[in-house]
Computed example of a mutant assay.
Amino acid sequence: MKTLVIVTHPSIDTSIINKRWVTELKKYPEKYTVHELHKVYPDGNIDVDQEQKLVESHGNLVLQFPIYWFNCPPLLKKWLDDVFAYGWAYGSNGGNKLMNRKAALAVSAGISQKDYSEEGRYRYTLEHLLSPFETTFLYCNANYRSFFAFYGTEEAPGTENEQFTGELEKSSQDYLNFVDNL
């Protein structure tokens, strides 16, 4: 079955990393469904039934987003709160729609990887900061497969820089490999 990639970026058109990842994913529509929440729900009103059916019709689930105040963008949090409902995602009343479904995260982090360390500026690793997502998937009996990250775009040179362009291209290919091997 195809992998569903829920992309939540408040300004995807000006994004560098997430936009590039989306472009790469869309080259393979037979493997991935790219679902951009801000384009589908510009008003923030989520069609829960439609979203649940979309998740159910796919094998794997990837949440792709930029780290936003050390968390996910608000629309993704709302999506999780609304879509991962009792009786559907968890609970004694048939809530098993995520059971054994492979799930992962793909995040762009503006801050450098060294700043996301116990010795770094913010004293927490990205793994630590993303642990609520892991816990959510575990609570829903999904098969959490960790995360893919691109660090340091906050201080990265412009896209005209050959080194950065090379890193971006490598990241795009590594991302597809990560998703393919969930």
Rank of each mutant, 00 (worst) to 15 (best):
K27S: 01
Y28W: 05
Y28T: 06
Y28F: 06
E30K: 05
E30Y: 04
E30L: 05
E30P: 06
K31Y: 11
K31D: 09
Y32C: 02
Y32G: 03
T33A: 04
T33E: 01
T33F: 07
V34R: 04
V34L: 00
H35V: 11
H35N: 14
H35Q: 08
E36M: 11
E36P: 10
E36H: 15
E36S: 15
L37K: 09
H38D: 03
H38V: 08
H38L: 10
K39A: 01
V40I: 15
V40K: 12
V40R: 06
Y41Q: 06
Y41T: 11
Y41M: 08
D43C: 03
D43S: 03
D43T: 05
G44R: 02
N45Y: 05
N45E: 06
N45L: 02
D47W: 02
D47N: 15
D47R: 10
V48P: 01
V48M: 06
D49T: 15
D49C: 13
D49F: 12
Q50V: 07
E51K: 13
E51F: 11
E51L: 11
Q52D: 00
Q52W: 12
K53F: 15
K53V: 12
L54M: 14
V55G: 02
V55Q: 04
E56C: 08
S57G: 14
S57H: 13
H58K: 13
G59K: 12
N60M: 11
L61T: 05
L61H: 02
L61F: 14
V62E: 08
L63S: 05
L63K: 06
Q64N: 14
Q64P: 01
Q64E: 07
Q64Y: 08
Q64W: 12
Q64V: 07
F65H: 14
F65W: 06
P66V: 04
P66Y: 04
I67A: 02
I67G: 06
Y68N: 07
F70Q: 07
F70E: 06
F70S: 02
N71C: 07
C72G: 05
C72T: 11
P73F: 07
P74L: 05
P74R: 11
P74V: 01
L75Q: 07
L75T: 06
L75G: 04
L76H: 01
L76M: 12
K77P: 04
K77F: 03
K78C: 07
K78L: 14
K78G: 02
W79M: 03
W79P: 00
W79S: 05
W79I: 09
L80H: 05
L80Q: 13
